[in-house]
Design a protein around this nucleic acid. Structure first.
Lengths: 124, 124
DNA sequence: CGTCAACATAGAGATATGTCGAAACAAGAG
DNA sequence: CTCTTGTTTCGACATATCTCTATGTTGACG
């Protein structure tokens, strides 16, 4: 946790007003909708949660994710791809296996967008 | 802003661990996915933003929302219904007009779910 | 009562999404 | 090189979603 990260978060808040601040323009609405749509599926939410619960910097192999669902492997791969295209996770291949991790800044950006003024006060 | 509200928010945080805390069970994943899916459409995001930017306790008449889009009135009505079914907004008819307002606790619950431990530290 | 205005609901059509099995691709082992 | 295992891509299908027009409902006003 660094001062730098604090600044980044502050910047996000400054550049990206929350849902209550002002009416969304078309472009930003489309951009945000794409990310929320990625979260709008129970399988993807569980996948994200499984990866995120590894902690900051943690990684999960696909081979650990697949058996957690009653779905075919291609289906899991497809959902992981959507999460990645939404900018919520990223991955890297190391040898035979592919490892996924979350991009916390993406999640935090969404959280800041959703926060209402009242809740912001409550935390402060 | 009351002490009561602070307690409610605290409760939410306690009862509903964030995405990074622990793997989501099926039931909660389905429940959350329904809400995120409602946010996964640019029209609905803009609608929510238009309503939310009225401030806490603020209301917007449908007759103000419809002209803000290049869509038919039934389509707007449909999207408002989905937002309402997701528990993000509520409405009331007063005479000829129907007024919508946001339910801030729903938004805050989502924000808490998305917040990563690092961001939570940054705010604290 | 009749009419008008504001919203909601119903039904239909085009497109998007979730899922699968089959096949392609990548990398290590023999 | 060939075989096996882990993963992604492809093609197809059923279902869901978004949008429209047409119709229904609710309440205000003569």
């Amino acid at each position: 946790m660094s001062k730098q990260e604090l600044e980044v978060i502050g910047q996000d808040a400054a550049c990206c007003p929350g849902v209550s601040a002002a009416p969304l323009d078309d472009e930003r609405a489309a951009e945000l909708a794409k990310v929320f749509k990625a979260l709008g599926d129970p399988v993807r939410l569980r996948l994200l949660s499984l990866i995120a619960s590894r902690g900051e910097g943690g990684e999960v192999c696909v081979c650990e994710l697949t058996p957690a669902f009653d779905l075919s492997q291609p289906t899991i791969s497809h959902h992981l791809k959507l999460l990645r295209q939404a900018g919520l996770i990223d991955c890297e291949r190391r040898g035979t296996w592919v490892y996924y991790w979350v991009l916390p800044s993406a999640l935090d950006r969404l959280a800041l967008f959703l926060r209402t003024p009242t809740a912001a006060e409550a935390v402060a």
